[in-house]
């Protein structure tokens, strides 16, 4: 698979983005002493506890651990969907806490791809439109959108299914659309929360093959949250969480 050319003129336009792109740090993201607490009734739950972590460009890493260990919370904090109670999250050198709502939206649109366990496609849109949506939000030209989306859908194995709506597709197909949507803008990182949890094992393997290929050939950085052994087996780096802390961080060849 060829690395995507990255359509001319589709690079982030604002100064922050340009500044981020000039960063030569190997770390695409960094968490520094991040803590996240929730109030559950009268009880304070510490979902993430003073966690520090760095992920390099091109990583294919997985956060694993039992339920309640804080995997999804860490992904949400990295993706700017949630804010830490304390500590800092940097994405491409940008402190997410300093960004306005609109700028955070722009970061999510341009630099982060999300793959959710429940696919979370927009139900009124076809596969093509779901994949195209973020490009449209970026204001991409019609022709560029069409070329890029068709190429991505072909890459994720959805050629010929462009006009199907989510309710007309299988779980695996929907997750492929979600992956296509996540990578269509060539984000800096794809955050995948239990991407194989709702699909059968054959589909799960196929999806992992796909994501692995995107990582190897296109250099897309993936960070998973999972307790699926298949994902863990393929990850180059396994970060085990327990009670919101890193229990073990192993890099594998």
């Amino acid at each position: 698979m060829a690395r995507h050319a990255g359509a001319a003129g589709r690079k982030p336009k604002n100064d922050i983005m340009r500044a981020m792109e000039t960063q030569h740090s190997p770390h695409i993201l960094r968490l520094e002493n991040v803590t996240k607490t929730y109030q559950q009734g009268k009880v304070e739950v510490r979902a993430v506890d003073d966690l520090s972590l760095a992920v390099d460009r091109g990583d294919f890493a997985a956060l694993c651990g039992p339920s309640g260990s804080g995997k999804t919370t860490v992904l949400n904090l990295i993706g700017g969907l949630d804010v830490p109670s304390s500590g800092k999250v940097w994405l491409e050198g940008q402190d997410l806490a300093t960004l306005s709502r609109a700028k955070l939206s722009a970061i999510r649109r341009d630099r982060i791809g999300f793959v959710f366990q429940a696919y979370n496609l927009i139900p009124v849109m076809t596969a093509y439109e779901n994949a195209e949506f973020v490009l449209k939000l970026q204001g991409a030209a019609e022709r560029h959108c069409r070329d890029r989306v068709m190429a991505i859908l072909k890459e994720v194995g959805l050629e010929g299914l462009e006009h199907r709506r989510p309710d007309e597709m299988s779980g695996g197909q929907q997750q492929r659309v979600a992956i296509a949507r996540a990578i269509v803008t060539e984000p800096a990182i794809v955050l995948a929360d239990e991407p194989t949890a709702n699909v059968d094992s054959v589909t799960a393997d196929a999806l992992l093959d796909l994501m692995q290929a995107l990582n190897r050939h296109n250099g897309v950085t993936f960070l998973f949250s999972t307790h699926d052994q298949r994902v863990m087996d393929r990850a180059h780096r396994l970060i085990r969480l327990h009670d919101g802390k890193i229990d073990k961080d192993e890099v594998r060849n």
Partner: peptide, 16 residues
Amino acid sequence: IHEFGVMKAIGVTPWQ
């Protein structure tokens, strides 16, 4: 609400 959450997650701004 869920759908709006997803839209915001993938980059839709509050204004949009």
